[in-house]
Computed example of a mutant assay.
Amino acid sequence: MAIITPQELQDELNIDDDENELKTLTSLISGATAMIKASIQMKITDDDILAVDADLYNRLIKTLATSMYYDRELSKGYSIGVRIMLTNLRSEIVGGK
């Protein structure tokens, strides 16, 4: 399984098919993956995470990118759902070693 594409996120969010929106979603997905990897606090690749739990990683990317789509500053921080998923994913990766 691969990381969610901007088109898949666009479809899930029911956003109009627009080149500028796809660029925004591409940037948000990139930012979300960087934030997730930094939160795991280890040098890790997307492929490493996908090998552990691709479904959870993609759901976390979708949820975080969606939060940033509607609130670029994440003014209220990570949502509870993002924190739960991040904790679970970190536990699977760090605990599995």
Rank of each mutant, 00 (worst) to 15 (best):
R90L: 10
T5D: 08
Y69E: 07
I40K: 00
I40N: 02
D47P: 11
I15V: 10
Y70K: 09
A34N: 13
T26C: 00
T66I: 01
E92R: 15
S67G: 05
T33N: 11
L25N: 00
T33K: 12
T66S: 10
K97W: 11
L13T: 03
I44V: 13
S67V: 01
N14G: 04
E8P: 03
K43F: 08
A38P: 03
K62F: 08
L25H: 02
I80T: 11
Q7E: 09
A34Q: 13
D17C: 02
S91D: 14
I49R: 07
Q10N: 08
E21R: 10
D53C: 10
D71T: 00
T24G: 02
L74G: 06
L28P: 08
G95R: 07
V82L: 00
L60A: 06
D46L: 00
M68W: 05
Y57Q: 00
I3H: 03
L9Q: 03
G96D: 12
I49Y: 09
K23N: 15
L60D: 07
Q41T: 06
E8W: 04
S91N: 15
T33S: 14
I36D: 05
L25A: 03
L28A: 07
V82K: 00
I61V: 15
D55R: 11
L50T: 06
E73H: 07
K43M: 11
I4R: 06
I44H: 03
G81R: 13
R83M: 13
N20P: 00
S79N: 08
L56W: 07
T33I: 13
S39T: 05
N88D: 15
K23M: 13
T26H: 04
S67Y: 01
T66V: 01
D16Y: 07
I4D: 03
K37L: 14
Q41I: 04
T26P: 00
N20S: 11
T33P: 09
G31F: 05
E12Q: 15
K62M: 08
L22F: 02
I15Q: 03
Y57H: 02
L60G: 04
Y70F: 13
K37C: 11
L25Q: 00
G81D: 15
T33G: 07
Y78D: 02
L60P: 08
I40S: 06
Q41G: 08
K76C: 08
A2R: 12
L28K: 12
R72F: 14
D53H: 11
N58Y: 05
A38K: 11
Q10R: 14
N88E: 15
N14S: 12
G81N: 14
N14M: 06
M1N: 11
S39H: 10
S39Y: 11
Y69A: 06
K43H: 13
I3L: 14
L89H: 04
G95Q: 05
